[in-house]
Amino acid sequence: TFTSYQLEELEKVFQKTHYPDVYAREQLAMRTDLTEARVQVWFQNRRA
């Protein structure tokens, strides 16, 4: 599960791009204290 802060950050990036590159995902992962893999999976699920 994600915190409301994490979801907010993820959604913010999703609004800009549905396909963030690895750099964007790593920045987001650091900001949200998630792994890059978790961020990647979240985007895959969000796009589905």
Rank of each mutant, 00 (worst) to 15 (best):
Thr1Arg: 11
Thr1Leu: 12
Phe2Gly: 02
Phe2Ala: 02
Ser4Glu: 13
Tyr5Arg: 09
Tyr5Asn: 10
Tyr5Pro: 04
Tyr5Ser: 08
Tyr5Phe: 12
Gln6Arg: 00
Gln6Cys: 03
Gln6Lys: 01
Gln6Gly: 02
Leu7Pro: 00
Leu7Ser: 05
Leu7Ile: 13
Leu7Met: 07
Glu8Gln: 11
Glu8Ala: 11
Glu9Gln: 09
Glu9Gly: 02
Glu9Lys: 03
Glu9Thr: 05
Leu10Asn: 00
Glu11Gln: 04
Glu11Ala: 04
Glu11Asn: 05
Lys12Gly: 05
Lys12His: 15
Lys12Val: 07
Lys12Asn: 06
Val13Asp: 02
Val13Ser: 07
Phe14Tyr: 12
Phe14Pro: 00
Phe14Lys: 00
Gln15His: 08
Gln15Asp: 07
Lys16Pro: 09
Lys16Phe: 10
His18Ile: 09
Tyr19Ala: 04
Tyr19Lys: 03
Tyr19Cys: 10
Tyr19Ser: 04
Tyr19Val: 04
Pro20Arg: 01
Pro20Met: 03
Pro20Tyr: 03
Asp21Lys: 04
Val22Tyr: 14
Val22Thr: 11
Val22Cys: 12
Val22Asn: 09
Tyr23Ile: 11
Ala24Glu: 15
Ala24Gly: 05
Ala24Tyr: 06
Arg25Thr: 10
Arg25Gly: 02
Arg25Ala: 05
Arg25Phe: 08
Glu26Lys: 14
Glu26Ile: 13
Glu26Gln: 14
Glu26Cys: 14
Gln27Val: 09
Gln27Ser: 08
Gln27Cys: 09
Gln27Thr: 07
Gln27Asn: 07
Gln27Ala: 12
Gln27Arg: 08
Leu28Ser: 01
Leu28His: 02
Leu28Gly: 00
Leu28Cys: 02
Leu28Asp: 01
Ala29Ile: 08
Ala29Gln: 05
Met30Pro: 00
Met30Trp: 08
Met30Asn: 13
Met30Val: 10
Met30Asp: 07
Met30Ala: 12
Met30Ser: 10
Arg31Gly: 04
Arg31Lys: 10
Arg31Gln: 08
Arg31Pro: 00
Thr32Leu: 15
Thr32Met: 09
Thr32Cys: 13
Asp33Gln: 13
Asp33Gly: 15
Asp33Lys: 12
Asp33His: 12
Leu34His: 01
Leu34Phe: 01
Leu34Glu: 01
Leu34Ser: 05
Leu34Ile: 06
Thr35Phe: 03
Thr35Leu: 06
Thr35Asn: 06
Thr35Ala: 05
Thr35His: 04
Thr35Ser: 15
Glu36Gly: 05
Glu36Ala: 10
Glu36Pro: 13
Glu36Tyr: 06
Ala37Trp: 14
Ala37Phe: 09
Ala37Lys: 08
Arg38Phe: 12
Arg38Gly: 08
Arg38Met: 15
Arg38Thr: 15
Arg38Ser: 13
Val39Trp: 02
Val39Leu: 08
Val39Glu: 00
Gln40Phe: 10
Gln40Lys: 15
Val41Glu: 15
Trp42Glu: 01
Trp42Leu: 01
Phe43Gly: 00
Phe43Ile: 01
Gln44Lys: 12
Gln44Glu: 15
Gln44Gly: 05
Gln44Val: 09
Asn45Leu: 10
Arg46Thr: 03
Arg46Tyr: 02
Arg47Val: 08
Arg47Phe: 03
Arg47Gln: 05
Arg47Asn: 06
Arg47Thr: 04
Ala48Arg: 11
Ala48Trp: 07
Ala48Thr: 08
Ala48Val: 09
Ala48Asp: 10
Ala48His: 09
Ala48Ser: 09
